[in-house]
Structure formats: C-alpha cells, structure tokens
Design a protein around this nucleic acid. Sequence first.
RNA 1: GGGCAGAUACCCAAGUGGCCAACGGGGGAAGACUGUAAAUCUUCUGGCUUUGCCUUCACAGGUUCGAAUCCUGUUCUGCCCA
Length: 437
Amino acid sequence: MSSLLQDLQARGLIADMANREELERLLAPGAPPLTVYVGFDPTADSLHLGHLIGLLILRRFQLAGHRPIALAGGATGMIGDPSGKSAERNLLSVEALEANIAGIQAQLSRLLDFESTTNPALLVNNADWMRPISILDFLRDIGKHFSVNAMMAKDSVRSRMEAASGISFTEFSYSLLQAYDFLHLNETHGCVLQAGGADQWGNITAGIDLIRRKTEQVACGLTTPLLTKTDGTKFGKTEGGAIWLSPERTSVYRFYQFLIQVEDAQVIQLLRYFTFLPLEEIAALEAQHAAGPERREAHKQLALELTTLIHGEAATADAVRASEILFGGSLEGITEKQFHEVGAEVPNVTLSRTLLGQPGAGLLEVLVAAGLSPSKGQARKDVEAGGVNINNVRATDAKLVLSPEHLLFGEFVLLRKGKRNYALVRFETELTPTEGW
RNA sequence: GGGCAGAUACCCAAGUGGCCAACGGGGGAAGACUGUAAAUCUUCUGGCUUUGCCUUCACAGGUUCGAAUCCUGUUCUGCCCA
C-alpha cells in the first residue's frame, strides 16, 4: 500500500473506499501523480471546521505530490444536497453564491498551493459547466445512465420519501449533478478520485458509475468519517454557531479556545485528523495525556497546530498569550502591553467615561451592554450566582456601580461571566453618551 | 368540499375556571468538585425600577368578581372521508 494511503488509514481518515484496488494501483510508489477532487457547497462566505477534514485531505494529497481540485458548488449549491438533511433546503441566490465562493477562495489559498509549478491546486466552480448545458442534453447524456430504481433505494432519498414532507424533484436529482461534476473533471482534468465525507458516499459512487458507463474508466472514491462530538452532535458547532475559519466570523482567540476546550476523549483523534504531526509524535502526546491529563499537553498542541495552519503564526501567538493571561488567574502585575493583547482577543465594548459612578454604569447594565448577559434580570441572576468577575475578582453585589477605581490603565474594565466568557469594556473620554447608556 | 383532533415558554410536554410566570423532561446558563475535560451534585431558565410590579398559554372578541382553562369567530397544523 502507498505511504499516503497508509498514513490516511492510520489516522482513521478512511471510512470507505470505492474501487480500492485501482486506487492502490494509482497511488503505488512510482506511479504518476493523480488528480483528486473534493466539493464544497458555498452556503456561506466562509468555510468552517466541518469542512476542514475534506480540505486537509486535499492538502495531504498535494503534499504527497498529487493534484488537488477544490470544487465550489456554485451550481449544486443552488439545489441543495439531500444527503444528511431532514428537510428541503432554502435556495440561495446567484449573487450570494458568487460572493460566498470569493470568500472561500481566499481561505483555500492558505491550505493549498495554487502556485506550485509541479502540482498546483485548482479551484473550479461547477456553475461554469452546469449553466451552459441544456436540459435536453443533460437528460439525454447524463440522465439516461441513471436508474430511478437505484436512486430511490438510497438511504438519503428513501428516508425523505417516507417522511410526510417528501422530497422535491430538484433535490432528488442532486446526485446526478454531482455525478456529472465528477465526469466533467474526469474528462477535462483527468480526475480519477473524489473524496468527501461519509455522507457523500452515494453521490461519489454515482459519479464513478457514470464515468464507467460513459468512458469505461475505473474512477475511485474515498470517504472520511463524519466527525461528531462524543454526545453525537455535530462537531465544530457551539451554541454560538459554527466555528468558522474566517477570523471575522470566529476570532482567532475563540478558534484557539474551541480546540483547547475539546473533550479529552476526542483530542487524540482530532490530532490525527487535523494535524500533520507524524503519528509517532501523536502517540507520544497520547502517552503524555494519559500520564497527566490535567497538563493538557495534547490539547495545547492540537490548538497550536491547527490555529497556526489556519491563521498563521503571529495571530496564533497572540491567542496563546491572551489565553495564558485570561486563564492564568489574577491580573495582578500585568503590563499594559500584555493587557492590550488580551483586549484584542475578547469582545470589546466602548462606553462613555461620563457614565462612571452614574446609574448607566451599573454592573447589570454594563453586563448587558457587553453582551455577556441577555437581559438585566439574567445579569442579576448571574451576579447572585457568583458567576461574574470584575478584573478577575468576583463581584457579589448586583447593585454595584462601576467607578474610576475599577479602571485598569485608566480606562478599561475586564468583565468575565462564568469560566470563560470575557468582555473588555472601555470607558472612553471623548465619546458622546449613546442613547440610553 | 365534509368530518375529527390539535395550537402552552428555546424544544418536548403537563395543566381543563381562582392555589399559574404555569408540573416534568431535554437543551442552555451559573455555582461546587476538577484540569479551560468528562461525570456528578446544587441553583436558575418571560421582563423589570425584584420581599413587589408588569406582560405571557396561536390570533381577535365575549362570558365571569376572576380564564391557559368556558363561549364565538379567525388563522395555522395533523389525521380521516371525497
């Protein structure tokens, strides 16, 4: 077996393979580079952690000398994949899809090398070949090769057929479109392998079948396990929503913290999935973790590796430093420079300095203004439960009004709710009081 | 088109004239114990100027001293018949 496949397998990244023998032959030592593609639905202007496994598969292939193609589903995104969805999707407008693709492209370039002279990555948009095709041509050339009987047997389709709401013809046809993508990439780029999450199995094999019928070529498929948390819910989602790769949507600090806070039971698996650390190194971390889980070396390494990969070294270093300070306990002795680094990583709110000592600077009001509590009633409960800290000192009085002696470095108050929800409030001199505050 | 059932807080779900801001479960928040983990335990989970007050039980009216609960109409959902 090729070292690439071996590595993927050892990392637990292979859920299933289609035409395994052929794939092993294509990846055998000395074989020429192959072309692999992974598709992404551009449902937002940023990718999130859920997309990352697929992206990293492409990166792994590229690092092994192969040619990765990232396919943005500009066309298929207009339809919506029924796989793994319980309900019919909302359709996106063309403009929204294009904006999303532009956003995603920027993120891809961090992970894939588009400039390489030997095996550059490629970003394609399936709208480019889907739009021009006429419905008659599609039905004749593509639809002809599919049996409705077989399509109805698919889990994703059958479960929706049994449900009361049913499935639209549009979504029913989805796998034909994805199959056509694979065929198209096979014909134009010699792509012989499609990878994706385990939920993509049916769509991938549909493409392989289509390629075989049209060209008599044996194409291959590879699926990765779906990542879930140990409670079965989706990985990479928090109450606040998905963990995005774009720092505008999820701050580097939050991204780093999300990984630091990963459950123990998962951290080793995530190291294997998401990092490029050699397996021996991961095994060493596993041993370290088992010996002293409270040191959380594996978590730190995971967060460091992945945050660096996505956000770069400088931003990661800031997030690490901010984390050390925020979770290091007292703010005693912190320098102004350090404090500013922390401030950059947590949500910021600016209030007028004239409020200090006034009712508008009441602790409850400020908690709501800072977004830490949804209402004053809730803020009151948070304080009474002992969950609110001012400058890392527990606040016990709900009637407390912030005054100049609470300020750090003359203008800041660092609020914390619970263990890890921080907000930096800045009392600025020049600011005109905002309505109501 | 006809008949039946239902609509309660983030979700599920009790309540069928006053004791109801509304049982219970899930989810969420905070605290304790820890390690920024898991498990466990405790408290909270409509709003507020919080020993009290205000607004809620699909919507609009009505009966009543008093309605989530009774009546009328409307909208929506599910099921059955055509």
